[in-house]
Design a protein around this nucleic acid. Sequence first.
DNA 1: TTCTTTATGCTCAAGGTAAGCATATGCCCT
DNA 2: AGGGCATATGCTTACCTTGAGCATAAAGAA
Lengths: 315, 315
Amino acid sequence: MRQPAKNSQRLSVAAELIAVLVAVTIGQPRVMTIERGQSLPSGPFELGHRSLQSGLRDWVEQQTRHPLGYIEQLYTFADRDRAANGSAQRVVSISYLALTREEQAAPADKAAWRNWYDYFPWEDHRAGVPSALADVIVPRLKTWADSADDRPTHNDRWQRAAIAFGLDGYAWNEELVLQRYELLYEAAFVEEADRSHGPDTLLSVFGRAMQADHRRILATGIARLRAKIKYRPVVFELMPPTFTLLQLQRTVEALAGRLVHKQNFRRLVEQQELVEETGAMTADTGGRPAKLYRFRHGVLAERPAAGTKLPLSRG
Amino acid sequence: MRQPAKNSQRLSVAAELIAVLVAVTIGQPRVMTIERGQSLPSGPFELGHRSLQSGLRDWVEQQTRHPLGYIEQLYTFADRDRAANGSAQRVVSISYLALTREEQAAPADKAAWRNWYDYFPWEDHRAGVPSALADVIVPRLKTWADSADDRPTHNDRWQRAAIAFGLDGYAWNEELVLQRYELLYEAAFVEEADRSHGPDTLLSVFGRAMQADHRRILATGIARLRAKIKYRPVVFELMPPTFTLLQLQRTVEALAGRLVHKQNFRRLVEQQELVEETGAMTADTGGRPAKLYRFRHGVLAERPAAGTKLPLSRG
DNA sequence: TTCTTTATGCTCAAGGTAAGCATATGCCCT
DNA sequence: AGGGCATATGCTTACCTTGAGCATAAAGAA
């Protein structure tokens, strides 16, 4: 079982750790990048690392200068094209989602926080459905589907587009970030799929490109996070120690890319006993002063079972 | 960013692929094993493999002699202790969940299907809560919690046990397979945690052990599958081409380890339009003949968006 | 003061879900 | 043939969750 098969060869690979490091600052979702926003931070798995996760933690903390809260593995893949040289060496990339707060320290070196909607403009529906969707993306998807050689391919393309982008009676599903990006890639609308694009071709429509498959990894991270906030209290890691309910709501909305009903949001958060009042108030909000809350102690330990359930089911 | 740090060393690792291969046969959940049930099938990532997933597919199909349907990545980890020799070599293990049907071919060689509840007897609640839970497991967990040196540790242990095993007002949650196994491991009740156990110590209570961390990986796979059947129509891959609604229900129950309300199950399956009647009936069921169904064509393509939603929310 | 903005409490209607009742339709046994 | 049994299948009810809107409170700004 463990012997290599006939025409195979035991492979020695290099392991690379890639992080989708997320924060939310004044209502905007942010992702840590390097190389002028073109890459996600990544580094090799080294001998001194106790485990993959601690390896990731080690050098991400070295870069951002503060401890990471939540870390979760995303996906592992081996890319044939990434062979370092002509040898049998390949790279196995192990990607992670990590959450933190931007405030804590200035990022080192060339690292910089970016709004993640710079990379996925079509994902932000907080101010309504982006006009670029109806004006540019959907028509082009239709053209792309119509250009299929045969009918089955056409139907398949259009069906997938309809599901992913909420057309033809399907509702927009904010979790389908990866499916949407992959469709745009397959249709060669994004720069990664066709590097002959000029550097700023429709940047505001199809978003900023990244190196190699980093934008795909970012999409995976966003999708995972959007799914997770609905049943696990991970928002914690993104919030300051004390906050108003509206701030909490804005954070969730930033991640989900859609607005939620304020009263229902409060009701849900309160009845789940996720938070408790600090007793203090803040008047920084512009209107009636808001109560300040903190997360209830022990929620982190308890919630692996229960779940948070935020009102993000529909629109 | 990509330069190795000071006291680190570029690491070359071997990549190992591990499969949790699942089938359901006459109402029992089955997992493919090798080495007298002590190991999950696993093999090295080789040069001839186009990708990690196709590598897994290649040799699992070679072993089971039929194509795999669904494959999904579970988790990747690097184990310090598994260094092949004294060198810098380490093993990165990438585990997958795969679904198939047992009938299709006899497994090769020493491979054998086993009932997965042989490894997790406490997970099968279809015939009611297993008596070993109340009789042995819970009392021992209590003893273990009480034996903590300090109060915080005690509280933490007991809280985790209560959540995982549905005590103190918490409901049993069939998805917490991994948490339960890890608790039993931490408390050193399972053989893997304490190899000085006699070979059959309380086999019927704490289940059959596996090599290294394979039982943990199996637990991860079961947990993932139990979560997935609730919102994705993955049961398909486990069913024969045509089946009765009760057979479908029994398959879901086998996976979930709990019974569901028959009428509600039917309603849900039908209203989701997952299946269609074949027109044929079967009288093999013992009572009134049942209609035969097949899965609706295109469900696989469509469902990445929607979800299946089986009635497994509570008890 | 009046308007604007945010906070907060409450109610209602629609839809979904758990559970149970009732009936249908076959087989097996006597 | 009839009774008992086992499964299939339709329908109803009570309850809970969730989306949405109305109304009021409490500040600062015009």
